[in-house]
Amino acid sequence: MVNLKKYRLALILLAAFILIPLTIGNTTDVHNVIIYILIYAMVGEAWNLITGFTGQTSFGHAAYFGIGAYTSTIMLQYYHITPWIGMLVGGLIAAALAFVINFQMFKLKGHYFAIATLCVAEILKTIFSKWKWVGAGDGIALTPIVALIPDAPKSAWGKIAWLSLDVRNRLPFLFTTLAMFVIVFIVCAALENSKIGFYWKAIRESHEVAESIGINPRNYKLLAMCISAFIAAIGGTFFAQFFKYIDAITVFPMSVSMIFVLVTVLGGLGNIYGPIIGAVIYYSLDLIMRRLTGSSGSGLDQVVFGALIVLITCTEPLGIMGIVEKVKARLLKKKEGGKENG
């Protein structure tokens, strides 16, 4: 049997994500924030694989995110194929692209690699903002799934499958996103504890040592990047379905790549819980700040928000999970101390 105690935090989070939107947070505003949290945490997990576990900083994950968003949207709009298939195709294209691009790129180290990933995303941004077939500068506005294919939702199951990716039914969409995040989380957790995960960490700690014990760093880095790109593309599909409109400026810019970096580092880099905790903190703060200042557009909410990020990083440089680990260690110490005394 799976050791439930080990996954206590995960279960608490899952319960919160199921209960909050049904009870105290049963407003569209909160639902939107939760969907954002789940989508960005999903891609954050993907980014964590390559940067947190394997140690190769990517500043360009928006590239794969955008590929996923565009692929599924085009398949839906032009060929009337469900986004469920679209996201898999998008994932495969993103993974293939990651393989082709990074086959050569992985000989670069550190910042040179990070800037190269940034360049790839920026190049894709320029191409997609000029490419007529994908809407060029106007982008693509998604028509509701039901309006697109009138006879698709014939059977009940077909209906559910189609509708759960239609954001007009906000709660089903939220739970679909949650389910996808849970799958991604389990896959990442399994990868972390597999042989591959240990190889990745070996490469992160020392390239040379990893090589000397017979790991081929490039192959394992490529594997991490391809899996990461696949997941990022799935996140992109959910984003497109949620946002109902995509263009190159919304899905490919550096600011999007940075969101994945930020939520993960805020939560805890190289920690499986990092992205989700970071995303929760990031977007809850964002929501609270917007409510407090009434989003007057003065920028004051962003000032306070930025200052909070600086404050958190300065007081707890290891991210929120750093605090959690510290508290855990202290509790454990107390427990052991108590045992000795008793």
Binding site: L269, G299, G306, A307, L308, I309, V310, T313, P317
Partner: peptide, 22 residues
């Protein structure tokens, strides 16, 4: 890790940019 410093400077950039707007 350098990425934490990056996060801190990102927060700082938000503060500085939005202060000008404010």
């Amino acid at each position: 890790s350098g990425l934490t410093a990056l996060l801190a400077t990102f927060g700082l950039s938000m503060v500085l940019k939005n202060l000008t707007q404010f």
